[in-house]
Each structure stands twice: as C-alpha cells, then as structure tokens.
Simulated scan of single mutants.
Amino acid sequence: MKRLILIVWFISAMIYAQNMRQSSLYSLFSDNKAFQVGDAITIIVLESSQASNNAETSAGRNSSLSANLAGGIDKTSLPKTDITLGTDNSFTGSGSTKTTGVVKTKISAIVDSVYENGNMRIRGSRKIVINGEEQLIKITGIVRPSDISSDNSVYSYNISDAEITFEGSGLIDSSQKPGILTRLFHWLF
C-alpha cells in the first residue's frame, strides 16, 4: 500500500510539475524580473547628447593692370599719362551650430512581445499635466533579459532600437512657436 501511494504521488508530481519561472514569482530568494508578455518593467531614462559643427570659408581674388605713357614732339614734352585698371573680389563666410540635450526620468513600460532568444519588445508612456501644460513621454524598444537589474529596471542606453519621444503642449509650447504672419513671411521669402 505504501508503495502504491508513493508511486501515485511520484506520477502526479511528474504530471503536474511546476514551471521554474512560475515558481520564481513566489520564491523569497529569486529576483522579480519581467520575462513574459504583460509584465511591467521600469525604464530609467538617462540620455545626454551634445553636437557641434563649425565651418569657415574665405576666398579672394585681386588683379590689376597699369600702363604709363610719356614722350614728346620736337623739344616739347607731352603730358605724362597713367592708366590703371584693377578688380577686387573677396568672400568671407562662417557658420556654427551647437546642440545640447539632457533628459532624466523614470517611466514604466509593458512587455509587448517576447522573441525566441528571450529578448523583449517593450512600450510605455506617461502623461503629465501641470497647470494646463501637458507633457507626454513615450518609449519603445527591445530589452535583453541580462540588462534587467534585480530591481526590475533597465537603463535607456541598454535598450536597442529605442525610440524616446517627449512632446509638450500648452501655453509655453505655443509661445515658443512663431506667429501666423511670421510663418507666412518665411514661407513667401
């Protein structure tokens, strides 16, 4: 009888074996990391970009032509004549551009899909409205499981094919745009 109970218990344990990933959700000793569709993950956005470009051009051309005439008839001298012809052409141009941007924020995302190699496509957005100013932050990309830290977060620079979008609307945004007449004159000229 004991053998029969032991065999039934062993067979039922084999049939209803637990998935290790499911068991890790309830374990005291495992990390709670995103690994399947629908799981949440925290993205720590730390982006910094800086670019500058400088260009200078200088060109010049100078030419001149001159002639002197002098002489006389019998013992009378003719007035001295000088003819000078000259041209001058020069161009100088310069330009420079400089762009700097820094973004720091945290945003939660959801695992959209999981690829065969374990990489996950994530997407997330956050909308913040303060005093009528609306700010929308969106993020999408692909995350490797090895880049996810034990607190279920990943840095934005570890996301491949990352698309991070910051959009704003409100009084400040509209005051930074040129007026209708200015845009019309820029379009015409």
Score class of each variant (00 low, 15 high):
V154N: 02
F189A: 05
I164H: 00
I180M: 10
K138M: 11
S160A: 07
I15H: 03
L188N: 08
D31M: 12
L65D: 07
S77K: 14
E56W: 08
S153Q: 06
T105V: 07
S66P: 02
S49K: 11
D74R: 07
S113L: 01
S77A: 13
R61F: 05
I43M: 00
A162G: 05
D147I: 03
Y157N: 15
G124H: 00
W9V: 09
L25K: 12
I83W: 00
I122L: 11
F35N: 12
V37I: 15
L181Q: 06
L85H: 05
L69Q: 07
S150R: 06
Y26H: 14
I164W: 01
S175Y: 12
R61V: 05
V103N: 12
F91H: 07
I43E: 00
N131F: 07
T105C: 07
E163R: 03
K106I: 07
S24Y: 02
L136A: 06
E134S: 10
F29D: 14
P178F: 06
L188Q: 10
L69S: 11
H186R: 14
D88V: 12
I110M: 03
S30N: 12
P178N: 08
I139C: 06
Q22I: 10
I7Q: 05
I5K: 15
S96V: 00
N53M: 09
N54D: 02
L78P: 01
T84N: 13
V114F: 01
P178A: 12
I137H: 05
G71F: 10
V143S: 02
I110K: 05
S113V: 08
G95Y: 04
P79A: 11
S77I: 07
I142R: 02
F166W: 08
T42Q: 10
T182V: 13
I142P: 00
S153M: 07
Q176K: 11
T97S: 00
V154S: 01
I142C: 01
S12G: 02
S66T: 15
P79C: 03
S108D: 15
F91G: 11
H186S: 13
I159K: 00
S66D: 12
S169E: 14
L69F: 15
P178K: 05
L184V: 06
E134D: 04
S58Q: 14
L28K: 15
R3G: 15
N53T: 09
T81P: 00
I122E: 02
D112K: 15
G118M: 04
R3F: 14
V114R: 02
N158Y: 04
F10H: 11
G60V: 03
N53E: 09
R123D: 09
F29L: 12
I180R: 05
Y16I: 10
P145F: 00
S175G: 07
Q135I: 06
I11W: 01
S125Y: 10
